[in-house]
Nucleic acid binder design. Structure first.
Lengths: 199, 199
DNA sequence: ACCCATTAATTGACGGTGTCAATATAAGCA
DNA sequence: TGCTTATATTGACACCGTCAATTAATGGGT
């Protein structure tokens, strides 16, 4: 051990969070162990307990922050006032698609109910806000649809999530990634435009 | 140790498979450990290695069998000749929905790429056959659609998978489980009927 | 400046896991 | 019978999460 390492780290909590995220991106969620994270930061194996009660607590904190990042991205997209109404509806699906394809390991973590605590109020809050945005935009565009508003929202989000998840599992791999010159994910969204009755 | 227990189990492989499935249903995939399964069958902790190379091998074998069960269910449904064309298309989504809601832990396992080996040829074969059924039925009903056949198939399967997965994660929980007197999953499928252009 | 309560980090232990090597046992066949 | 092979056991190793006991440093009150 280097003699100049101070006993107190001063901001170990953030350092642990960063190290965990880095391990997650590099080697998947199974690599994000309490001990590995501590090792990465250069601290003893039980040090993290002062900042994260247990592994679930650490992973839940990461998930909250990631959902928050997605929400921020969504709100940035919706801040662009030159969008068509259908583009506004697709802001959330597009954000999820982009995020999922860019950070596969993070995306996977977000839906691991055996690892993160969905009862955590802060995670409920941010996912609810994303969902509310989606419903809001749907309501704006199709105020009187043949379909219940929640049904459309759930169907749309489900489709996007299912696509990202299955694709990351290697499903549909033999199918070309592009169809009619467009990426598959674009075609998937086009399918949903038929539901919305807009082009 | 009971003295009458024979050294050789004669069909340990099937016994391990059964025990694993039982643990999976009861306590989730994290409870399906090599040692717990061996314990359940009453055999030493390293006995399973003779029949399953490692944990991934055991879980992959289970996943293959479960996908096979789903395929069998699908083919039984499609054997009913009194179905409308849209009902035929929905045979696979319905089968997945029913399976996912009935066996949440098994369903979760099917999509855990960190636990099962999707490169296994037998798993590719059975998922491909399910996918081919879906494409076949879509082609029968909408031979010339504005959408690529694979796109519709992927979109439909994605929507169903995403719905089951997110619902099991507690998402959409505050939304009523029924809409207009129909279960939510039925409403979701109705949304997709709009895409198919049929009622 | 000192003391002391509080916070933060270390060390060591416990039971659990997967996996491997060495060993023991039984089966099946020549 | 005896030999080969398949199958199961035992024991070890390196991980893991978590906890209790201990040590180190901080910071506020006197």
């Amino acid at each position: 051990m280097s003699k100049d390492k101070p006993f107190h780290h001063r901001n170990l909590k953030e350092a642990l969070h960063d190290a965990a995220l880095s391990l997650l991106d590099a080697d998947g969620v199974s690599a994000v162990t309490i001990r590995a994270v501590a090792r990465e930061v250069g601290v003893s194996h039980a040090a993290p307990v002062n900042h994260y009660k247990d592994r679930q607590s650490l992973l839940t904190t990461i998930a909250v922050q990631q959902f928050q990042n997605i929400l921020t991205d969504v709100e940035e997209r919706l801040g662009n006032s030159s969008l068509s109404s259908v583009e506004r509806i697709e802001a959330i699906p597009s954000a999820m698609l982009d995020y999922g394809l860019k950070y596969p390991n993070r995306y996977q973590l977000l839906w691991r109910r055996d690892l993160i605590d969905y009862a955590d109020p802060s995670i409920l809050e941010v996912t609810d806000r994303i969902y509310d945005w989606l419903c809001e935009e749907i309501q704006q565009t199709i105020p009187e649809s043949t379909f219940d508003r929640d049904t459309v929202a759930i169907a749309l989000w489900s489709m996007v999530h299912g696509y990202v998840d299955m694709r990351q599992n290697g499903m549909f791999l033999e199918k070309s990634d592009t169809v009619n010159g467009l990426p598959r994910q674009r075609a998937i969204l086009d399918v949903f435009r038929a539901v919305l009755g807009v082009n």
